[in-house]
Amino acid sequence: MDSVRAKRRAGETKLVLDSVLDVSRAQALYRTLDQALGQSAPIVMDGSRVERVDTAAVQMLAAFGRAAHERGLKLKWQAPSAALRQAVDLLGLGAMCGFEA
């Protein structure tokens, strides 16, 4: 099962994160995120379904956030779950992941 699904909509790339984001699925997540960076459209991340997340995944989201910023791509989070928010905050990576403070 993929940890993320990407949908192309008019003018934006929407990524829906799966319920479990961890190191075992990190390679797959990387490939999808990589594709999203290849599109020159704003990115919308749907993190509403995330229930379990680990540091490897959050680190990647942070690296992704930075990469998007470097490429001038807009990154917007849509309804991140409490589990995701907590993990990102606890790791001190909120800003880098693109979460609003």
Binding site: Y30, A56, A62, A63, F64, A67, L90, G92, L93, M96
Partner: peptide, 26 residues
């Protein structure tokens, strides 16, 4: 109560990023 600060200097560019490697420190 915790105050956590991540050190992200070790993060490589996206192209060189290995999903299974830990680049961060706290």
């Amino acid at each position: 109560k915790l105050r956590v600060q991540a050190e992200t200097d070790g993060l490589p560019a996206w192209g060189q990023f290995d999903p299974e490697t830990c680049y961060l420190a706290w």
